[in-house]
Computed example of a mutant assay.
Amino acid sequence: MDKSYAESIASDIMNMLSSAKEQGLEMQDGFQNDAFTSPDFAFGYLFYPKEILLEIPNLPQSVRQRLKKSNIMATVDVGGKKIGIHLICTLSKAFEEIETAEEIVAGIYDKGLLEYKKQVAEILEKDLNQNAPEDALKQ
């Protein structure tokens, strides 16, 4: 995995955790954050502890086995429908106990983050090509 990409995502996640803490959220109850929204697509994050995720029926066994105390998933929505949920980070401590982006980087699940990055890139490329002026596409 591209280390700078992982560090960038970890920094964003750390900011979301800090904001949730400042707002007084009960973080281990789980919460979500919409990182980017447009009329056509949205990217966000789900923050859930292991015990809540294990209650989800049909959660793939491969995901169940990876879960730790605190888990972060990236979501992708297109046209108002969720088309991707990627487990990108698992941590052995409660969300409230996470103090640095380095801790998040250490908990990154490379395969999940790579799948998320690829899906986002495909959506952005498709959107760019659909909305680019005709002259720009001919060059």
Rank of each mutant, 00 (worst) to 15 (best):
L114K: 11
R66H: 04
D40F: 03
S70I: 09
F47H: 08
K82P: 07
L113M: 05
E7W: 00
Y48R: 07
L87P: 06
N15S: 13
E97Y: 07
N58E: 12
G30V: 13
G44Y: 02
I123Y: 04
Y45R: 02
I104G: 04
P49D: 10
S18D: 15
I52S: 07
S92W: 07
F43G: 04
R66A: 14
K82E: 10
K82Y: 03
Q139L: 13
F31Q: 06
E97M: 07
T100A: 01
S19L: 12
E96H: 07
K50V: 09
E102V: 14
K117H: 12
P57A: 02
Q130G: 04
I56P: 05
M14W: 02
D127G: 11
G84Y: 01
S62M: 08
A121Q: 13
G107L: 05
I88C: 08
T100E: 06
I98S: 09
K68M: 15
S11Y: 13
D110H: 10
V120S: 00
F36P: 09
Y109G: 06
T37I: 11
M73D: 00
N131F: 06
D29M: 14
K21D: 06
L128R: 12
K82H: 01
S62T: 15
N58M: 14
Q130W: 03
Y109R: 07
P133D: 15
D29S: 14
K117Y: 13
C89M: 08
P133E: 15
A74L: 02
Y5V: 12
L54A: 02
D34C: 13
Q28C: 09
K81F: 12
E134L: 12
V120H: 01
E102C: 06
P49C: 12
S92L: 11
A94S: 14
N58K: 10
N71G: 03
S38K: 05
N58G: 01
I9W: 00
L87I: 01
L87K: 01
I13F: 05
L54K: 01
F43N: 10
L25N: 09
G24W: 04
S18F: 10
G30D: 00
A136V: 15
G44M: 10
E96I: 10
S18C: 11
Y5T: 02
F41Q: 06
L25Y: 14
L137G: 05
F47L: 12
A35G: 09
L113C: 08
S70P: 06
E7D: 13
E26V: 13
G24C: 08
